[in-house]
Nucleic acid binder design. Structure first.
Length: 877
DNA sequence: TTAATCACGC
DNA sequence: GACGTACGTGATTAAC
């Protein structure tokens, strides 16, 4: 059977749906009726037609090539109601969720895209189905192209083939344009011949076959009036014909292969339906629903090994070390699956640990292992005394580098993006939350077997993609080795002085009680001080303080608001103090005590290496990258972070101004580079430039403002952001920024170039070719576009800094091992490395750490690090 | 469970 | 001029 191609006229169907359905909105107040109607139509097509190729075509901008012929084309049309236009982005998100391609082309209409693709597919002998509400498309009908037009509602359609067209309209497909040329079309403002309607037009076409013949043989037209009308409107008629003719050779950049549709991920779609509030459609995509394209799980033959022998291994196997929970420091291993090009196995962790053959294989670096999340597998197996080596492929890291913007880096989502199906989401198999549990053994073994199988199948494609993006080195030389180092750091953990922490907690508790008491006294009533919703009315109604900012739900009571009210009422400083202390107690004292391991007094964070959009790491469970430092009160928390052995010290080393140095290098800005080469204080230097005074005339306030500007440059904040952080107007903030660019013209040029590069390629890159895609950079929405532009300027800076410290970690790890240091890295906080080391190694460590960190890359400005050490992290300042 | 608000770091 | 503004993690409240 021929493959089936379905082409949908997106605008037309969305319009139909919008007007056919009442103006529904969901609980967020977003209108969804057009999206809803479109979805019902889509589900019907997926169920009934099961297309092999699928595309939704949209109209592009306001003008099309037809406007050159006739400037009033589609003139007089009602403007698209905003209630509908706001639904188009949502509709596109929906299509993304389904994994359905959509396309639009400047200067062309959806019709032309459809006409071009339908013609191409038809020529290849494929079955084409076009879906629209627009009769113009009937001209495409042929032996293998049908056109379905919506009747009443959206899902009710008439499907036209040549016979049906003849029966209904008494014309052949090729005559549709002649018909329109004669009768015109008021909705598109196509004139046609005034006074000629459908009846007359059909009669003429029956007699003369086509428009040209009507005019060639005008004498033979019966009726004087009609002849006159045709005569005087000849130009309009021919122009109309040109206007309604669909372009079948549009310069489209998609091919049929791009449209291949292999079904959608049930999980992703139902998630999206839930967000939109499409409860009634859920059953159609979920298990047992009639439209269930749920991960078609192929039969898989998993062999449960009875005895592990070296013969099982070929030297290239994919492996899944399965755990039910994501914290691999704690979660038990439920089973292991191994897939190579010969067989698929399942084994229990007991079988694996009891087997010398398994250990020999696992610890042999020559035997390749391909996994998803090397760090998790490595750490989990370490708990069983297995030091796995030879991991040469990590699907998680590959997927992250290919596109960090994807928020789903799990095996089913990745495989779907790579055009494969066959793996279910863990949630589908295990359930979630409290209901999570192992399924029956057979199901479990098949599930993790399919995962390993998918890793095996996707390796080549993922690596090819990385190579194509010139990211293979980044992947293989940076992220992969780093994963193992991070695993060691996490596994090693950080020792906490639990008693000290508890002592601080008790002290805080006393102070909190006292402050709370005082606040209630001043407020004249007791209430839940942790509830902004309750605090708001007390401050702004009972105490009648001026309202500075509101949130969606009421008064804002955030710190920046309260600070502005600080001298208006003595309750305010007390609330700020309560908040500050409360944060320390709940997040840091109690939070850390909750995750400390009782037997070792250690905490084991997890660094997420595949999350941030810039390439930085993040840290969870606990987050050790946001331990207080700014305020002395909070900084004391660091006194509880201690070395794991007697006679050891905490050693911290941080890059000084790494982002600004990276910026100086990338932008090749002479002044900025010079400042760093001379070892100037960069904030003072910037102040001197921006305020136009000599270095020694820079006041501390000027330096403070300049620092905020530098900060803004590094983090890509807007004039608004800068105005907020300095408490000045947006205009003043903009003036600062302008002045900054004047001072550092190289930076200004760099910013401009980066943005235009992003517009050209769609992404920006770092030193090591890390990518960040910025689809919004060409958005017509000012906000989205501005945000994308700032991201374009900032990401290469922040991301390159992340590249550098990651590389430094790898270099340092090598050096420490090579030179037999006992010292080890235990934490990374973006521009800072924290180690613990025996006191006697400190002198050597100072030299090694500093030299490795400063020489890991060679920039046109020097890199500098500051280091220090002491008995606790607090003292390493 | 999920959204909103707040606060900590870089 | 629009409009809502760096990236993360986590605690808490208050709705469901």
């Amino acid at each position: 059977m021929a493959e089936k191609v379905v082409l949908i006229d997106g605008n037309s169907i969305a319009y139909r749906a919008f007007f056919a359905l009442p103006l529904l909105n969901n609980d967020k107040g977003v209108y969804t009726n057009a999206v809803y109607g479109f979805t019902t139509m889509l589900l019907k097509i997926l169920e009934e037609d099961q297309p092999d190729h699928l595309l939704v075509a949209f109209d592009a901008g306001k003008t099309t090539f037809r406007h050159k012929t006739y400037k009033d084309y589609k003139g007089g049309r009602q403007k698209t109601p905003s209630e509908l236009s706001e639904q188009f982005p949502v509709l596109k998100e929906l299509l993304d969720a389904f994994g359905i391609k959509y396309y639009q082309l400047e200067q062309y209409e959806a019709d032309d895209i459809i006409g071009t693709l339908a013609t191409q597919a038809g020529d290849k002998g494929l079955d084409v189905k076009v879906i629209s509400g627009d009769k113009d498309l009937l001209q495409l009908v042929s032996d293998n192209i049908t056109v379905s037009l919506t009747k009443k509602g959206i899902t009710n359609v008439d499907t036209y083939d040549p016979e049906f067209l003849m029966e209904k309209m008494e014309v052949r497909p090729d005559q549709v344009i002649d018909l329109k040329a004669l009768m015109g079309d008021s909705s598109d403002n196509i004139p046609g011949v005034p006074g000629v309607g459908e009846k007359t037009a059909v009669k003429l076409l029956k007699q003369f076959d086509k428009l040209e013949n009507v005019y060639n043989q005008l004498d033979e037209v019966s009726g004087k009036k009609l002849k006159e009308k045709l005569e005087t409107n000849k130009d309009e008629a021919f122009m109309s014909k040109e206007l309604v003719t669909i372009n079948r050779d549009s310069p489209i950049e998609v091919s049929l292969e791009d449209l291949t549709f292999k079904g959608y991920e049930t999980h992703t779609v139902s998630q999206f339906f839930k967000e939109l509030g499409f409860q009634s459609l859920l059953s159609r995509v979920q298990e047992g629903g009639e439209g269930d394209t749920e991960t078609a799980v192929d039969e898989i033959d998993i062999e449960v090994v009875s005895e592990i022998s070296s013969e099982l291994f070929t030297g290239k196997e994919a492996m899944v070390v399965e755990m039910l929970h994501d914290n691999y420091h704690q979660s038990p291993i439920e089973g292991i699956s191994i897939v190579n090009d010969e067989k698929k196995y399942f084994m229990t962790i007991e079988q694996a640990t009891d087997s010398e053959a398994f250990k020999a294989w696992a610890e042999n670096p020559e035997q390749e292992k391909w996994v998803f999340d090397a760090k998790a597998a490595t750490v989990a197996l370490l708990h069983h005394g297995i030091h796995i080596q030879g991991i040469t492929f990590d699907l998680l890291l590959a997927s992250y580098l290919i596109n960090p913007a994807e928020n789903n880096h799990d095996i089913p989502a990745i495989s779907h993006r790579m055009g494969e199906t066959g793996v279910q989401y863990d949630e589908e198999v295990y359930g979630k939350g409290a209901k999570m549990k192992l399924p029956d053994e057979e199901t479990f073994r098949s599930h993790i077997g399919r995962k390993a199988d998918m890793i095996f199948r996707l390796k080549k494609q993922a690596e090819d993609q990385l190579k194509q993006n010139e990211q293979f080195e980044l992947y293989q030389e940076l992220e992969m080795p780093l994963a193992l180092i991070l695993g060691e750091m996490e596994h090693q953990g950080v020792r906490l002085d639990v008693d000290r922490l508890k002592g601080m907690g008790e002290e805080l508790e006393g102070r909190l009680d006292k402050v709370q008491e005082e606040i209630f006294e001043l407020a004249g009533e007791t209430f839940n001080l942790n509830s902004p919703k309750q605090l708001g009315p007390i401050l702004f109604e009972t105490l009648e303080l001026p309202v500075i900012k509101k949130t969606k739900t009421g008064y804002s009571t955030s710190a920046d608001v309260l600070e502005q009210l600080a001298d208006q009422h003595e309750i305010i400083p007390k609330i700020l103090l309560y908040r500050q202390l409360g944060k320390l107690k709940s997040t840091y004292i109690e939070g850390l005590l909750k995750v400390v391991h009782e037997d070792t007094n250690k905490i084991h964070t997890r660094f997420n290496q595949a999350l941030t959009q810039t390439g930085r790491l993040s840290s969870i469970d606990p987050n050790l990258q946001n331990i207080p430092i700014r305020l002395e009160e909070g900084r004391k928390i660091r006194q509880a972070f201690v070395p794991s052995q007697e006679g050891w010290v905490m050693f911290a080393s941080d890059y000084s101004q790494i982002e600004l140095r990276v910026l100086a290098h990338i932008a090749q800005d002479e002044k900025l580079m010079q400042a760093f080469k001379e070892g100037l204080d960069i904030h003072t230097q910037t102040a001197s430039e921006v305020f136009g005074v000599a270095q020694d005339e820079v006041t501390s306030d000027m330096r403070r403002q300049a620092k905020a500007v530098n900060f803004g440059i590094v983090y890509g904040i807007s004039d608004y952001g800068l105005s907020q952080s300095l408490g000045i107007t947006r205009k003043e903030a903009q003036a600062f920024i302008d002045k900054y660019f004047e001072s550092y013209p190289g930076v200004k040029d760099y910013m401009g170039e980066t943005v235009s590069e992003a517009k050209r390629t769609g992404y920006v890159t770092t030193f090591m070719n890390r990518r960040r895609y910025l689809p919004d950079i060409t958005s017509r929405n000012f906000n989205k576009r501005s945000f994308a532009e700032r991201t374009a300027m900032n990401s290469p800076i922040q991301g390159s800094a992340a590249d550098i410290i990651k590389k430094a970690m790898i270099d340092l790890d090598h050096r420490l091992k090579e030179e037999n240091f006992q010292a080890t890295m235990i934490l990374q906080v973006h521009d800072e490395l924290i180690l613990e080391a025996p006191e006697e190694e400190v002198e050597k460590l100072k030299e090694v750490v500093a030299s490795v960190m400063t020489s890991t890359v060679d920039l046109d400005v020097p890199l500098e690090v500051d280091y220090s050490y002491g008995p606790t992290w607090y003292d390493a300042k």
